[in-house]
């Protein structure tokens, strides 16, 4: 039985050498485990055994048994902020935990963190959330005078559908609860091709829609900002936000080690693309290149 007590954290961070608090915490938390893991020869035996927890939640499966932890580190070369024409390299910590033996579900580079509460296998749905790092005007000269935009947390849900094993369509709908209070909808489709048992290539189109509140926060320019930045006043409205394409290659070297790389391109559309921030100081073409390596090991709960 695949009890999906599963959590995943892949947190791309904005700006060069900047790491979000959550990501940093996860990375630091993983360090002792990583040390222990690297001391351990790669084998199918559990790395260590933990005692059973002092209580069990009624109705939920007990955590006893073997679990697989995946830790790793990657990098992401991405625009400094959405609409920027400059890019920088950011670290991306990798951490996930799942029942031993359960196969990691396919995950696209743009997917938000999510949990499938409804899971037919071919159809999965549940809550989703995304953390959007703050945008500090002092970090980038193009943003001078525009002020800071607080970090945003977007909460919502996702649905994904596999008509066949090698094709996934996914939709996310999220509402900003901090940072901005707009609505964001992401749509993606991926063809997932297992070239060999250890090598998988995937890719497909992407589309994002954003409401006025979600767009104006990052691309609108009010009178005060216009005066301070030298950019013209601009009222950004919602609508089609971006269209793009992405691809990913993942290679499992052995049961423990996996490496991956991906490219995501998106072209800003509508009022986001027409914002003076983009037309005068940035670019509508946004490319992200990511890479990383992860190590998996098992532990057991009595």
């Amino acid at each position: 039985m695949s009890h999906a007590v599963e959590a995943a954290l892949r947190s791309p961070v904005s700006g060069v050498h900047r790491v979000s608090f959550v990501a940093l915490t996860a990375a630091l938390g993983a360090v002792p485990v990583l040390v222990l893991a690297l001391c351990h020869s790669a084998s199918a035996e559990p790395l260590f055994t933990l005692p059973a927890p002092p209580f069990e939640l009624p109705g939920l499966p007990p955590p006893s048994g073997s679990w697989t932890v995946t830790i790793g580190m990657g990098g992401e070369y991405r625009p400094d902020f959405e609409g920027s024409k400059h890019s920088g390299l950011s670290p991306v910590p990798i951490f996930s935990i799942r029942r031993a033996g359960s196969i990691e579900q396919f995950r696209g580079a743009r997917d938000s963190s999510s949990i499938a509460l409804i899971d037919f296998g071919y159809l999965r749905a549940g809550p989703a959330g995304k953390f959007v790092p703050e945008r500090k005007s002092s970090d980038h000269s193009e943003l001078n005078g525009l002020g800071d935009v607080k970090a945003a947390i977007e909460l919502g849900g996702f649905v994904e559908y596999y008509p066949v094993d090698w094709f996934r369509a996914r939709a996310e709908l999220r509402q900003g609860v901090t940072g901005h209070h707009g609505t964001v909808a992401d749509f993606s489709a991926d063809v997932i091709v297992p070239v060999m048992p250890r090598l998988t290539i995937s890719g497909g189109p992407r589309f994002t829609w954003k409401s006025t509140d979600a767009t104006a926060t990052y691309f609108g320019i009010d009178a005060a900002q216009a005066q301070a930045s030298g950019l013209p006043i601009y009222e950004a409205k919602g609508g089609a936000h971006s269209v793009g394409v992405g691809g990913k290659v993942a290679y499992r070297i052995n049961p423990q080690w996996q490496v991956y790389s991906y490219v995501e391109y998106q072209k800003l559309l509508g009022d986001a693309a027409d914002s003076p921030l983009v037309t005068l100081r940035g670019s509508p073409n946004q490319t992200t290149i990511g890479f990383g390596a992860s190590y998996s090991f098992d532990f057991r709960i009595q």
């Binding site: 039985m1 695949s2 199918a44 048994g65 073997s66 029942r99 031993a100 033996g101 048992p197």
Partner: peptide, 15 residues
């Protein structure tokens, strides 16, 4: 408790 995977380095790793 579910029966755990046996040592099977090749193929899919099932639960």
């Amino acid at each position: 408790r579910a029966a755990q995977p046996l040592d099977n380095p090749e193929g899919l790793r099932l639960a």
